[in-house]
């Protein structure tokens, strides 16, 4: 579904959140169209969780304004909460309640109509119908995550906020999880998801890259490399570690990253990069190929370019 022409589900401007004298989120703007899967990428402590919490009214912004599902994020968080499904980073359902009791609890909290049938259906979908009397604390990481997702879908939210939903979950479970997210998105549910994983980032329609409280880039996933304008060469051959050491620090080469059996050598200035590589092209043991930069190189580039605002804050102080 395209967001063009319709009111954005999330539209916020200049969000600021400070904890003490540390600015965790610094003038954050975002516009999320309906039905989109919007990815929040960024290193640990970059403010992804804080931003999500501000969007659903769990934290009060120190500055900024905006709407979420058409409701004011500062004054109408009760209305927002009614229509948002929020999945926390850490499993935050009741470990000492059974699977069914947890779902029942959440359904009641959101005043879900036809509760028993909805809970039964959720258990069936989860494939947990025969284990519904097991305590949630006994479930493995992957099952806990699926239960948490089911719990925040019971009231059929219009917006899903998922905070690193697949941390500590095995690849198969992650794949299933993303299939589910895609299905929901196709049904018109807007999804905002934070993640560390590049393979998940690729699944998103749009990506906002956040580092140390600041949004560095924001756009459609496939356009991100183009927007950054990073030039990349791929090189294959023997003794890549040795080659990488030689390449490091050369003028024009900003980044040398290992990808499986190849190195990706990148720089912002394509001509300078080519000049730097030229002497190595003669070595016939290696095959060099110019290629468009992938998301992963772009993010490594963005991360190395951004400064740690905690460190910066300390320098200033």
């Amino acid at each position: 579904m395209s967001g063009n022409g319709t009111t954005p589900v999330i539209e916020v401007n200049g969000l600021v959140k400070k904890f003490g004298d540390k600015t965790v989120v610094d003038h954050f703007d975002i516009s999320v169209p309906k039905g989109a899967i919007y990815g929040f990428l960024g290193p640990n402590g970059s403010g992804k969780t804080t931003t999500i919490r501000m969007l659903c009214g769990l934290l009060t912004p120190d500055a900024g304004s905006g709407t979420c599902l058409g409701y004011d994020i500062l004054r109408q968080s009760d209305n927002i909460k009614e229509h948002v499904g929020y999945m926390t980073q850490k499993f935050s359902l009741y470990e000492d309640l059974t699977i069914r009791e947890n779902l029942d609890f959440m359904a009641r909290m959101y005043r879900v109509k036809d509760r028993k049938r909805k809970v039964d259906a959720a258990l069936e979908d989860l494939g947990l119908a025969n284990r519904s009397h097991q305590q949630a604390g006994e479930l493995s990481g992957g099952w806990k995550q699926r239960l948490a997702l089911a719990a925040c879908l019971l009231h059929q939210p219009d917006l899903l906020l998922l905070d690193e939903p697949t941390a500590g979950v095995d690849p198969k479970a992650r794949r299933d999880f993303w299939d589910e997210i895609r299905r929901l998105s196709d049904d018109g549910v807007t999804v905002l998801v934070s993640t560390h994983y590049m393979d998940e980032a690729i699944q998103c329609d749009n990506i906002a890259y956040i580092a140390y409280g600041k949004k560095l880039i924001d756009g459609p996933a496939r356009k991100i490399p183009e927007m950054v304008g990073l030039a990349t060469w791929r090189v294959e051959g023997p003794d890549l570690a040795e080659l990488a050491t030689q390449l490091h620090g050369k003028d024009g080469i900003e980044q040398v990253a290992r990808f499986g059996s190849a190195l990706h050598v990148s720089g912002m200035d394509a001509q300078k990069l080519e000049a730097a590589i030229k002497p190595f092209l003669k070595d016939k043991r290696y095959t060099w190929k110019q290629q468009p930069a992938g998301l992963e190189e772009v993010f490594i580039h963005l991360m190395s370019g951004s400064t740690d605002n905690f460190a910066a804050g300390q320098e200033a102080a």
Binding site: L58, K81, T88, K90, F91, S92
Partner: peptide, 14 residues
């Protein structure tokens, strides 16, 4: 302490 407060607060409960 158990983190369940976050879920409780994310619901519209007053």
């Amino acid at each position: 302490e158990r983190g369940t407060m976050e879920t409780l607060l994310s619901t519209p409960a007053r």
